[in-house]
Design a protein around this nucleic acid. Structure first.
Lengths: 277, 277
DNA sequence: GATGAGGTGAAGGAAATTTTCGCGCGAAGG
DNA sequence: CCTTCGCGCGAAAATTTCCTTCACCTCATC
């Protein structure tokens, strides 16, 4: 890519919306080049001509705008009106989901699914906010007929971890990657030959030391009003959901009946007075 | 708007993407009209000319497409490869978040925030998957120095609900809106004069009967492999987050120190060996 | 310093868009 | 029933925008 072309490409990249409003001549003037160069650049970018680049730009601009609009300012302030808070939160969590999905290592995930699907039993460790995620994973696994248990009590967790052996799986969930109460039972499980999985936002943290498989969650920025627990939870839950679906797929034969069985069992707990289901 | 113009407008409305790819002449031919009519229609729609309408159309198309693209097929199938599962899940949850944010009644939310911020104590009821959300809300409220408790045991919940009175708040979380185990304690709380809040996907369900305030979560479609619990949880958590931030804002004076205090207290639970924080 | 291989822009040609203008259809009035 | 008028409509001209060609200029290489 030549110098003039770079200038054009730069202008296009830096402000697609503005460029979409410009004609070839306009963009050429803006970048101090000629119309020919603009067209050449468009070609280089993979479009048949400037017209199409312009259309694509309009689309891109619409995208960005839609993405930005709710995040007027990225951070939530103390004096934000409630509608803004809702919009920002929703946007942030969406972003977190996208980041997490993009950053997930499919190989590790696949291996983790395989381990869980074939496990004799599974222990899940998590304390604090991650404890809820641990429970969520456990609930899900139980629903498809697997044997799983969540531990938030570090002592009991270690006591149980001692029982694990090969073919068993231990999962540690910690955002910081350095929560001692979670690392300890994972270490014990690791030492006893179980397959160990870490779900953490810091794949380079101490927890990974004892993890055969590491699933990375997104480490979105936090702010005073928005502690890390919030976005890490969203991210962790997505990973858990992925694990669950993956395992359910692999064990479909047994998972499907188990799912409907648990569903049936709950039906009578819902008052008949309400709208069906 | 004249007949020919209607035809053009219709074509544009029914398939923006296709029209964006068309030239004036093309669109005129497609709609069986003339170029002049197309331009006139564009003017009528508020654009200076067809060129600008087309750009707008491209933007619109990009929007729509972005909504669709990742959802290659909306449902997760048993034989979906893992990367697809991840993408679909992330997309679905993002969609759920957007729906929830869009559907939240700000008046109700604002009132709920006010009630929570001024509550003497808060009880939260939830069983099953919603139980985790209830715990999440409780954890958050506790972190900013409020008195809150989650109940998943229906008997204990009712026993506790009896203690509630005016100025107290009871929150029921149920996706179906008809979970007896959650409705019952809410009813008791309601009868004792507490402010009752329901977080449910069925605002017309029985639970709303005893709720002063109803916060509606999104009721995304579920599928065999993706039980309702999954998307309802995402939605519920967003509502909880909104409540939390709202309350934290209103009680900022006391919430801020409480937040940092709880943070400090946890610091030593993280091994120093890892990367900081 | 000569030579050649691109990068670059000016100008002309093609295609798009916009405007103009007149035709024809239907409604209202004689 | 006929005339007249208004107006929607489209063909074609006018204009703008976009694309192509070609000649010039720059810079690296020998």
């Amino acid at each position: 890519m030549t110098r003039s072309m770079q200038r054009v490409a730069e202008a296009v990249a830096s402000d697609p919306a503005a460029c979409a409003a410009l004609t070839v001549t306009g963009l050429a003037e803006l970048t101090g080049t000629s119309e020919a160069t603009v067209v050449r650049t468009a070609r280089l970018l993979g479009y048949p001509g400037y017209r199409d680049l312009r259309l694509a730009l309009a689309g891109l601009a619409a995208h960005q705008q839609s993405g930005r609009a709710p995040a007027v300012t990225a951070d939530i302030a103390v004096d934000d009106p409630l509608p803004d808070v809702v919009a920002k939160l929703a946007y942030d969590e969406q972003q977190t989901l996208a980041d997490t999905a993009a950053g997930l290592d499919m190989v590790q995930l696949s291996a983790a699914v395989g381990a869980l699907a074939g496990a004799r039993r599974t222990d899940v460790y998590g304390v604090g906010a991650s404890g809820l995620v641990a429970q969520d994973l456990t609930q899900k696994l139980l629903r498809i007929g697997l044997i799983a248990q969540a531990h938030s009590d570090p002592h009991l967790a270690v006591t149980n971890a001692v029982q694990l052996r090969a073919k068993d799986v231990a999962v540690a969930i910690t955002h910081s990657g350095s929560t001692g109460d979670v690392i300890e039972p994972l270490r014990v499980a690791f030492d006893h030959g179980a397959t160990t999985i870490a779900i953490t936002g810091r794949p380079d943290g101490p927890v990974s030391q004892y993890a055969d498989l590491v699933l990375t969650t997104s480490t979105a920025r936090e702010s005073e009003l928005r502690p890390a627990a919030m976005s890490s939870r969203t991210s962790q839950l997505l990973v858990v959901d992925c694990l669950f679906i993956g395992v359910a797929q692999r064990t479909y034969e047994s998972a499907a009946p188990a799912l409907s069985a648990s569903y049936e069992a709950l039906a009578h707990r819902h008052r008949s007075g309400g709208p069906s289901r």
